[in-house]
C-alpha cells in the first residue's frame, strides 16, 4: 500500500493537474465559445477573439505544459521521486 509520502506526493500531483485542466478549459473551451464577444477588443492590431484562436490560446498551451512540468519536477524532488 502507498506510504504517507507517496500519498502526499499524489495529492499534490493531483491538485496541480486539476489546476492545469481548469486553465486548459478556459483557453480551449471558454474563450473559443466567446470569440464573438471578445472581438469587441483589439490586441496587437488583431481582433481579440480571432487572436486568441490563431495564436493566444496556442501560446498558453505551450507555456502551460512547460510550467506544469516545472512544478511537477519540484513536487517529485520534494518527495524524493526526482530523477
Amino acid at each position: 500500500m502507498a506510504s504517507e509520502g507517496q500519498r502526499r506526493h499524489w495529492e499534490k500531483t493531483r491538485s496541480l493537474t486539476y489546476i492545469v485542466l481548469v486553465i486548459w478549459a478556459i483557453f480551449g473551451i471558454l474563450i473559443p465559445w466567446f470569440a464573438k464577444e471578445l472581438d469587441a477588443f483589439s490586441f496587437l492590431g488583431f481582433e481579440l477573439g480571432y487572436y486568441m484562436l490563431v495564436q493566444g490560446s496556442l501560446i498558453v498551451f505551450v507555456a502551460l505544459i512547460w510550467i506544469q512540468n516545472f512544478r511537477q519536477d519540484a513536487i517529485d524532488d520534494e518527495y524524493g521521486s526526482g530523477e
Partner: peptide
C-alpha cells in the same frame, strides 16, 4: 476548431 483542438490536446496528453 482544428487548430485549437490539435494543439490543446497536448495539454491532456501531458497532464
Amino acid at each position: 476548431g482544428f487548430v485549437i483542438g490539435w494543439t490543446g490536446g497536448y495539454v491532456l496528453v501531458n497532464a
